[in-house]
Amino acid sequence: MTSRARPVFLNLLGIRLPVGALTSIGHRVSGVLLSVSIPFWVYLWGLSMRDEQGFRRANELMAHVVLRVVLVLFIWALAHHVLAGIRHLLSDVNVGSTLRSARKSAYAANLGGVAVALLAAWLLW
């Protein structure tokens, strides 16, 4: 009986991730990214509410190329998070809780997020 701790297999690269797992990872990563971006959006909102100048400045900022790219990425994160979130809310009331339907909704959430991001990119250009 060895006193050394037993090793485990947990090499994530060697473990297959089904589509639902990708949706879930995306949901978590997007959540964290959205959280981190909140202070910036509060700042922007405060700027737009302060006075006439602030309002114009906020609009100018959002017209800037770099911030437009950030906005598209933010919209992608938001879209994925919301679509995956809706999938969770529906699952809570037993809609799409079985494996077959869950797989379909996972694809829908993953692709939907990308679609919304592309739409946003197109609209902003």
Binding site: P18, A21, S24, R28, H88, S91
Partner: peptide, 19 residues
């Protein structure tokens, strides 16, 4: 539980613990 559903994906008896 985050309802990732890996459990249902791999159950050899076709069960769905997530549900």
């Amino acid at each position: 539980c985050r309802t990732i559903m890996n459990c249902a994906e791999v159950c050899p008896k076709g069960l769905e613990p997530s549900h």
